Amino acid sequence: MRISIFVTALLMSSLAGTAAASDTTAEQIYSAADKFLTAFAREQAPDGFSVVYDSGKLDARLSLATCENPLDVSFSGDPWKTTQPSLLVSCEGSRPWRMFLPVSITITGDAIVAARPLSRGERLTESALSTDSVVVNSIRRGAVTREDQLVGMEMRRGVNAGTVFTPDLLLTPAAIERGDHVIISARSGNFSVNSRGKALASGGIGEQVLVENLSSSRTIRARVTAPGHVEIPM
């Protein structure tokens, strides 16, 4: 395979004036990038994802300072959220350099989609979910690929059947609703004291809500720890 790319090289100042002595070639950079992308594709295969990247040839005139160590290649953009990520190719040593290589890559696999039209505020169950093969990294907000990340969540807005689920479509459901009676735990280390209270606002696990202590009639701010339970530091 060969990578068809526009190459923009960012050379460190220590390389100025050394072009004549440079001998890291385009072919070496191509080989390192190809090895990296092939390994990335193999890593995704066991999870059911197929990776294809565009082929082509680097400018054969490209020549950079000799690299004493194997070239290091990594993604500088998230390949799961764009079909045009960049590869950062770098050299460490006495004459270091780095360059960015934009590539075209597609990751195809199953994502979770709406099995039917869904309404705003609807709580998701398994029957509301289906799967479909999509180009996962063409969905910029990130496609959800596991059902267990969706069951029990609420829809932030309504969607049509077949819509790919992305994190921005979802809301964590409130563990406590305004007006609910709750258990207030005042905790210090392993010691805690419980009292009864009433939630003055709705909130999800980990969020802070105002709660009225029914014994003292005081209003306090507490953290939601579970449905019907809040906690305050002692």
Rank of each mutant, 00 (worst) to 15 (best):
C67Q: 12
L124G: 00
V209D: 00
Y53H: 12
S138L: 02
T24N: 06
S138I: 03
G228D: 05
S90Q: 08
H181K: 11
E147R: 14
L71I: 08
V73L: 02
K35A: 15
A222D: 05
L11T: 14
T66I: 13
I220S: 04
I5V: 13
A175N: 02
F40E: 12
M155D: 05
G48P: 14
R95V: 13
E27C: 09
I29K: 02
A226R: 11
S13D: 05
E231I: 01
L71R: 12
T18G: 06
E92G: 09
R196E: 11
D72G: 09
S133V: 15
G206Q: 05
V134T: 13
A41F: 14
I184T: 12
V182Q: 00
K198R: 15
A186M: 09
A174F: 02
S13H: 07
I232R: 03
V159M: 04
V52A: 14
S86N: 14
D23N: 10
A20K: 10
G206H: 03
H181R: 14
D72E: 04
L200F: 06
T219M: 08
A20N: 12
S202F: 08
V52D: 04
N137C: 04
I105D: 07
A222H: 09
I5Q: 09
I3Y: 04
A186H: 10
D132H: 10
A186C: 06
P117Y: 05
G162M: 00
S217H: 04
D180E: 09
A19Q: 15
S192V: 03
L118I: 10
L200W: 02
V159K: 08
P233F: 08
G56L: 07
A21H: 05
V136Q: 06
M234R: 01
T18Y: 08
S50F: 10
A143Y: 03
R61Q: 15
V52P: 01
N190R: 11
I205M: 04
D168Y: 01
T131K: 14
S119E: 13
M153D: 02
S127H: 07
P167W: 03
S119V: 13
C91D: 05
F6G: 08
K198T: 11
T172S: 15
N160F: 12
I232G: 03
V103A: 05
N137A: 07
A39M: 11
A199M: 02
T106G: 07
S216M: 01
R120A: 15
R156I: 01
R95S: 12
T106E: 11
D47I: 11
T166W: 03
P85A: 13
D168K: 03
I3P: 03
T83P: 04
R123C: 00
A19T: 08
